[in-house]
Design a protein around this nucleic acid. Structure first.
Lengths: 156, 156
DNA sequence: ATATTCTCTGAATATTTATACAGTTTACAT
DNA sequence: ATGTAAACTGTATAAATATTCAGAGAATAT
């Protein structure tokens, strides 16, 4: 009776790939996938999967898998942005200059902003150059170390 | 009738500092804070605040403020920069002029840049004055509203 | 001033979600 | 084989949350 197990992973997929905002519609989708259960069971499944219901930032709510499977998913793409764009980092006092491939400064800068490294007070991007300001008390070593851990494989 | 505004920020605090898992208990807490409303109103408030309900990883669910208020701790310091420096905003056509305390224009301008309000196409700072250009299709009302939500308590 | 619109609200109700309870099936020990 | 416990589920219902409707002020326009 490993039925539930399969169902759970299907539910996970459905939630990841769709904007679902109530159990009845999810129930429909499940039926199409060949799983026929009642709302009560689904409710239990969702609880088991620790699914949350969060705002879409506009006027509605939708189901979402717990942070771990999500935040890091999105974070990964930012890390990729950094990896793809970055060429070098150098420092002068509390300022850093990141050189990027042409046109990549913005995506890298934005990504850094999202990653919210504690060492960086702020950053501003041109076309292939980013200025970063270290937060007071932070050193370039601190930042590079943070890079090492948050964005592995970025050489310096 | 600025009642709701106050209530919203109290609700925010309550949610941030407590593990609340239903509206009735939140309603109780609100009452103790001097706000007496019905569940219907609270439901609307929560929607307005984009509050979500997420798993505690164990066996229950609790209310949680949207990522935004959390992801960018760094954003808070920029918001502070704006609050500290700004004096007034006025508009003429698609241009805006922000007056700041002497020497603050740059920090405010930089902060606005980081906050990346969608209504602002670009901005340039002098010593106590910032010019901003509204993005096409955006109105000053849009911008002021954006201010309201991103940088609460900045009067205009 | 009067009309008009907008924001905010409560009461009642609809919708959505969770759970108590009972029944079925499987696993596993005796 | 029989008993017992555990996992899983549906039905019915409770609990939680959202929305419809109507109305009261405030704000703005005429």
């Amino acid at each position: 009776m490993r039925e539930r197990h399969n169902r759970l992973s299907v539910i996970k997929e459905l939630i990841k790939n769709n904007r679902i905002d109530n159990q009845d519609t999810l129930l429909e989708m499940l039926k199409k996938e060949g799983f026929s259960v009642t709302q009560a069971t689904l409710s239990r499944d969702l609880k088991m999967l620790k699914v949350g219901k969060i705002s879409d930032g506009w006027s509605g709510y939708y189901y979402s898998l717990p942070e771990n499977d999500f935040v890091s998913e999105s974070e990964k793409s930012y890390i990729q942005d950094v990896r793809r764009g970055i060429i070098s980092i150098e420092f002068s006092g509390n300022m850093g200059v990141i050189k990027t491939r042409p046109g990549h400064a913005n995506s890298v800068c934005f990504a850094l902003d999202v990653l919210a490294l504690p060492e960086i007070l702020g950053s501003i991007a041109g076309d292939d150059t980013i200025f970063i300001i270290l937060r007071e008390g932070m050193t370039k070593e601190d930042l590079l170390e943070s890079f090492q851990t948050r964005i592995p494989d970025v050489k310096d």
